[in-house]
Design a binder for these strands. Structure first.
Lengths: 148, 148
DNA sequence: ACTATATAGTACCATATTAGTACCATTTAA
DNA sequence: TTAAATGGTACTAATATGGTACTATATAGT
């Protein structure tokens, strides 16, 4: 089904929540409430987002989290990568030598191209755009493939 | 990491193998050998591909499998969908009512747009193109997003 | 300084999904 | 009639994921 993980989904929900209060610091507790998610889950996700420099954290009372950058400067691709690592459709599209079949399977190049294309598409979508609700069915996105 | 499942990966390997001998019927056993995969796995994948009308099957001795259509007319998207269902990044992008958060989360429309974009990109890649080996790093694909 | 509040890090468990296997029924060419 | 092949179902094992708990550390306020 080519899904993002639930954790990634949650991460984007939390990021969207952090957007809209630019600069304002919100505790994990407050973010959990606002996003209708469980506190431990939100905490876990936030820690990953801090590690990858998407979110700034402040300790102590009245501490919490805020976006490290403007929502326009943060891409969906970055959030996905923060939670689940590099955007790649197959093992072999991450780097050479990860797949045992590599010697006998000629698909690596094509998987890399496809993975790269998808990664670029997600890079082009900013958190700010993501936060903008869209009625469904929305105007479809246009994607061109295999035109080098 | 946004991966396709291994089964899907195998499915494409098998389909690529079936291509190159247009029309020729190959047994699951022969396909397993050629693709360097285990017979039970290949059988399982082939059954799914038959069910979704991508592959034709013939019973009895000298039976086996062949492509149902020309490789140019089969898209990678179809193969993915055959093994793992509709191409969708989140539950909510498949159809309404699958995600409990739907009422409080405004991301559905955007996820649908992104999923659709990726699906279209994969539709544009044919099995024939996939079978054509590409040296890495290949020329990157160009994808445009959020330009309705 | 002390205390309460909040994040940081690590480690853990339970569950769900996926991969892989086995078995028996059915079809069909020789 | 027989043997070779697919069709279908059900099962097992491994892995990944989601979710939780606990301890350490930092800090604002009194």
């Amino acid at each position: 089904m080519l899904r993002i993980s639930k954790m990634t989904d949650y991460a984007i929900m939390v990021m969207v929540e952090l957007h809209g209060l630019r600069g304002e610091v919100l505790s994990a507790h407050a973010l959990a409430e606002r996003s209708h998610l469980e506190l431990p889950t939100v905490s876990k996700v936030l820690k990953l987002l801090v590690k990858t420099d998407l979110v700034a954290s402040y300790r102590g009372p009245s501490g919490g989290y805020s976006l490290e950058r403007d929502a326009e400067e943060i891409s969906v691709a970055e959030i996905i990568a923060a939670i689940e690592g590099p955007i790649a459709m197959t093992e072999c599209s991450v780097e050479e030598g990860l797949c045992a079949q590599e010697a006998v399977c000629g698909l690596r190049g094509n998987w890399q191209r496809i993975s790269l294309a998808i990664a670029k598409a997600m890079e082009a979508v900013s958190l700010a755009e993501m936060a903008q609700p869209v009625k469904t069915p929305a105007a479809p996105l246009h994607i061109t493939t295999f035109n080098a």
